[in-house]
Each structure stands twice: as C-alpha cells, then as structure tokens.
Amino acid sequence: MGPLDALWHLFNFLLTPVGLGLIAASLCKLAWWRPLRAVRWQRLAWPAVGVAVLIQIIFLVWLGRDGRMSTYAAQVVGVALALWWAAFGPRRRLPSAG
C-alpha cells in the first residue's frame, strides 16, 4: 500500500464519525434552537466529533475490525451524551436574567 492509499484509508476511517458528529450537532441546534440560541455550533460539534472518533478507534482496537454495527450504535449513544453534556449539562452558562 502506498502513501496515497494509506491517506484514503485514513480519510474513509474518519469520515463516518466526523460526519455523524457534524450532522448531529447541526440537528441538535436546529431542533432546540430556542434553548440553544446562546450556544455556538462549534461548542456542540467539537465534543460530538471527538467522542465519535474516540469510540471508532476504541472499537477498532477492541474488536479488531472496522464497520461493526456495535461500533455505530456506540457512536450514536456517545454522540447523544456528548451533545446533551455540551448543550444542557451542568457547565452550561445560562444568560443573566437582568
């Protein structure tokens, strides 16, 4: 395998978790647009993408194979938890009342 092939393999390996994180952050911002008006899209997207990529790598090492349904299910759950934490978790700064 040449360097270009390795680059394409890495790109395809990361495409699913990055796409899932970006699409989920966009849908979260769209679905809860009023409560998340003050939260920037990047603040939602970075944790979602990071968790999805981390789960992809962990399951590749654990199962020895990429593309298992359990990996994708774990990514969906992990991204949902990361988005909840970033959007509505205890660290969220609420706008002042005054």
Rank of each mutant, 00 (worst) to 15 (best):
G2A: 07
G2W: 10
P3Q: 07
P3G: 15
L4S: 10
D5A: 15
D5L: 11
L7N: 03
W8Q: 05
W8M: 11
H9I: 03
H9V: 07
F11H: 05
N12C: 03
N12V: 10
F13H: 06
L14H: 04
L14Q: 05
L15M: 11
L15W: 10
T16L: 02
T16F: 04
P17E: 08
V18A: 08
V18W: 01
G19Y: 01
L20V: 07
G21Q: 06
G21P: 10
L22K: 00
L22H: 00
L22E: 04
I23D: 00
A24N: 08
A25W: 02
A25V: 01
S26D: 00
S26Q: 06
S26G: 12
C28N: 14
K29E: 00
K29N: 00
L30T: 13
L30D: 00
A31L: 14
W32Y: 15
W32S: 11
W32T: 10
W32D: 01
W32A: 13
W33N: 12
R34F: 05
P35V: 11
L36S: 02
L36P: 01
L36G: 01
R37W: 06
A38V: 10
A38G: 06
V39R: 13
R40Q: 11
Q42F: 01
Q42D: 07
Q42A: 03
R43S: 05
L44P: 02
W46F: 05
W46S: 00
W46R: 05
W46G: 00
P47D: 13
A48K: 14
V49M: 05
V49C: 06
G50Q: 04
G50R: 12
G50W: 03
G50H: 07
V51W: 09
V51R: 08
A52C: 14
L54N: 09
L54Y: 05
L54I: 06
I55S: 04
I57F: 08
I58F: 10
F59N: 08
F59K: 13
F59W: 12
W62R: 14
W62T: 11
W62E: 11
W62Q: 11
L63D: 09
L63A: 09
L63T: 09
G64H: 15
G64W: 15
G64M: 13
R65H: 13
R65Y: 10
D66E: 13
D66G: 08
G67E: 03
S70A: 12
S70K: 03
S70P: 04
T71C: 02
Y72W: 12
A74R: 09
Q75D: 08
V76L: 15
V77S: 09
V77W: 07
G78C: 10
G78F: 04
A80K: 10
A80G: 15
L81H: 11
A82M: 03
L83P: 11
L83R: 14
L83I: 04
W84D: 10
W84F: 13
W85S: 14
W85C: 05
W85K: 15
A86T: 04
A86P: 04
A87R: 10
A87P: 09
P90Q: 07
P90F: 01
R92S: 06
R93E: 05
L94S: 13
P95V: 13
P95L: 15
S96E: 15
S96K: 12
G98K: 08
